[in-house]
Design a protein around this nucleic acid. Structure first.
Lengths: 341, 341
DNA sequence: GGGTTTGCTGTGCACGATCACAGCATGGCG
DNA sequence: CGCCATGCTGTGATCGTGCACAGCAAACCC
């Protein structure tokens, strides 16, 4: 039984047909759907499949169906940042597992260099994957645009900018998450609430700021522009932002920070300025990244449902591959209360 | 030019042949190697390829060659731990990129549940990938054994246990890394050097401990078993280990810890016990993970060349797919000196 | 009983590439 | 001149499927 390391030629549909005493067509029908097959024949075929250990040759199938039954997971942006982000890891893992239940392999595609971008675009537009799960930060990405034009089913993670409506996306409800956090800060009696926004050329950055302003307006609290500064999600920009806020509005009693990483920087700056947290200034983050747990004090933050996001991305993509129209899915966030508020 | 979202049928080798005024065979020859083709014909074919935007249909090619020109990246063990480990991310990224330069897609395979394991085994043994890059902690894994028996080219990350010699592996030189660190501690004048080992059912754990003992023996320093405790690479086990060491050998003046994560725990325990670092106790880690930089004081540690490891894994795997014999590659580590020693 | 529907089955073709083979010049050599 | 080697090219067979189609028996309806 040992074939000495050589890979034996796998059984074909023909072998199964012979074994079961039926024709190739019947085996094929059993494999796909099982309609128009007599119970006796179906049983014989299944027995033959088990006996021979037959597995369909996906290349042959793809050749004729035109589908590849595989999906690309495309990461376009600076990859260091994403690979270091545990949320990205949850996303990647979730997508892989969700696809696995459909027997669809995930191809990991990293578009870093220009060369890689070209290669990947060619690979995808040549039809070697049926669809693409797209992760990129400011996703008005040229590669995404190209894929969209080529008619490749596409599902983005987070609301893409600049792309038409033919691309689906799944995102957490940034605006609502921001609203929850600011409401929480208001409920603590804070009224001079600052904000360090994300980059305002990204939907996330815009939405979180919008949520902040909405809640203040609803509560009848004046939106003081001196309490609004913007960052780029980096820790350093959080520290700089907090310094500016302290200078412009020394009476600030809370800050809503649009990412946990920036919030770490904010904590540093506030402590340097001698403010106690949360007594003098309450600090709320966004993302529930490990940074939130690593921070001292531990950060109150907004959790995005990354496990559900991955599941939804896969669901929407498969639907779109199946011919359905693009869709947008917005998932609710959750306030995680810890020590910083 | 806009085809309204429909995917147009890609050009085939036939289209290219017609465009170039040659036969399919000639086009095929240009595509693979270009031998026995006149310069004029080759030029005409290349022009036609550029003009038509032709990309080879991998399914058709695979059907006849029997190769899939794709590779699986298989993770068998508790996935949380790996996905949280930045080194794993570097490895995954490195493998993907190295494969990309060969135009070979990487399929991410996560064998968590029993169902997934079966599915993946079937997928691989059916020949849907040409080879497998294997990552698992204690890799006497049944799935690996099955693949090895089926003759699937396999390259493990780290020395596998229990598998025969038909499986290649690439690993950092654990023993030598440990030797470097312990030598470094000796060079600081320390003589009562403790060790918190990794799990002793893994080659890495065993090797690092062996290196520790070797150097002490060479230096004529007695190996005191009270200075040896073992952990499981987790932060908590590092903390517990340090506590045990302090109790068993209060005169300890240095610790070699087999992972940075455990070393973080060691630092916590030592500080709690009032030891100054590095004045009273020098601490050396292993891995050079971000934990090493996040620690206070920053950890002196052993860097494993993860970028080179991924490149070598891909190189060895492709060689083995090409028919070469399995190989073992051991790569040198590097001592990174920081504040904790 | 003739015609139609229904359920099931087998067969040939197509998918798009590779590969072995045969064919055709051309040129060198004895 | 005959022969063979060399360089290049085209053709048909082939890989393992799915699909359209035809065939066939049984049942059903009028």
């Amino acid at each position: 039984m040992n074939n000495a390391g050589g890979r034996r030629r796998p059984p074909t549909i023909h072998d199964v047909a012979r074994e079961a005493g039926v024709s190739r067509g019947t085996v094929s029908r059993v494999l796909n759907g099982g309609h128009y097959v007599s119970p006796a024949a179906a049983e014989a075929v299944n027995a033959a499949i088990r006996k021979t250990g037959y597995v369909v040759n996906r290349h042959a199938r793809s050749l004729i169906t035109g589908r590849s039954d595989s999906v690309g997971f495309l990461l376009t942006e600076p990859q260091e940042r994403f690979f270091e982000d545990p949320n990205f890891n949850v996303l990647l893992r979730g997508c892989t597992q969700a696809l696995a239940t459909h027997d669809i392999p995930l191809l990991l595609m990293l578009a870093g260099t220009e060369d890689e971008r070209r290669r990947i675009t060619r690979y995808i537009t040549a039809g070697h994957v049926d669809g693409v799960l797209l992760v990129s930060s400011h996703s008005g990405d040229p590669i995404a645009e190209e894929l969209r034009e080529a008619g490749v089913p596409l599902v983005a993670c987070g609301k893409p900018i600049g792309l038409g409506s033919r691309v689906s996306y799944v995102a957490a409800d940034d605006r609502d998450g921001a609203r929850d956090m600011v409401r929480h800060l208001l409920s603590l009696g804070r009224r001079r609430i600052g904000v360090v926004t994300g980059p305002l050329d990204t939907p996330g950055g815009v939405e979180r700021l919008a949520g902040y302003k909405e809640v203040l307006a609803e509560a009848g609290v004046e939106v003081d522009e001196r309490l609004v500064v913007s960052g780029d999600y980096s820790r350093a920009s959080g520290e700089a932002g907090a310094d500016r806020l302290l200078a412009q509005a020394p009476d600030m009693d809370a800050v809503f920070v649009a990412s946990d990483l920036m919030a770490q920087g904010v904590l540093t700056a506030l402590e340097r300025a001698g403010r106690r947290i949360p007594e003098d200034v309450a600090v709320g983050g966004f993302d529930d990244s490990p940074a939130a747990l690593a921070a001292r004090p531990e950060l109150t933050t907004i959790r995005q449902p990354w496990d559900r996001i991955s599941a939804e991305m896969v669901r929407v993509l498969l639907a779109q591959i199946g011919g359905e129209d693009p869709a947008a899915v917005i998932l609710p966030t959750e306030l995680v209360k810890r020590e910083s508020t």
